[in-house]
């Protein structure tokens, strides 16, 4: 069963494919999908645990009439390396391979409540260094480390 049979093709938008089965919610958090409701033209279609030739089962997210930012694409790829991102323009599929980021800025908050980057008084830009080979990101300011898999819990809103 192809997902095409479940959901029709879209004219433009983003398909986030090969998400590990049942992990779509984590990706939704990462891309702050709740923000998308502000745009009345956007629909979000989430497919969970659909068959995949490559991985057996997978999740897929379609962002109808929304292009996911390349920064978000890179963040998703960091946490779920199997993910592929396709931008759809006029029904045509463009495969996009995100570069893994060296630094993550703004998006993720430090888990240490006493970190200066969580200060309400100071306009500190949140920043993490990506330690690819170790599987962690590290706060540029206070050195706290976060496993890749925990990043979706720390998306700043």
């Amino acid at each position: 069963m192809e997902e095409g049979l479940l959901v029709r093709k879209i004219d433009w938008g983003t398909v986030i494919d090969h998400i590990p089965a049942w992990r779509a919610d984590r990706v939704m958090r990462l891309i702050d999908a709740d923000q998308l409701v502000r745009d009345p033209e956007v629909s979000v279609i989430v497919l969970k645990n659909v068959p995949s030739r490559k991985y057996g089962r997978k999740d897929v997210i379609k962002l109808y009439h929304h292009f996911m930012s390349k920064t978000d694409a890179a963040l998703v790829k960091l946490i779920f390396p199997t993910v592929t991102v396709n931008y759809i323009r006029e029904w045509k599929v463009e495969k996009y391979s995100p570069e893994l980021p060296e630094v993550i800025e703004g998006k993720v908050r430090c888990p240490e409540l006493t970190c200066i980057s969580n200060s309400k008084r100071d306009p500190v830009v949140r920043r993490f260094r990506v330690m690819k080979e170790d599987g962690y990101i590290q706060c540029y300011y206070c050195d706290a480390i976060v496993e890749f898999s925990s990043i979706p819990d720390l998306i700043a809103v």
Binding site: T114, C115, I116, S117, D122, Y140, Y141, C142
Partner: peptide, 30 residues
């Protein structure tokens, strides 16, 4: 006052070095 403003004010006095203790982690890096 923000730490940013305090630091800028001190720098404006023409100091050559700032020794700082602060309760926030990462404050020195900032």
């Amino acid at each position: 006052e923000s730490l940013y403003d305090t630091l800028k004010m001190i720098e404006g006095y023409g100091v050559d070095c700032i020794v700082m203790r602060h309760p926030a982690r990462g404050a020195a890096k900032y």
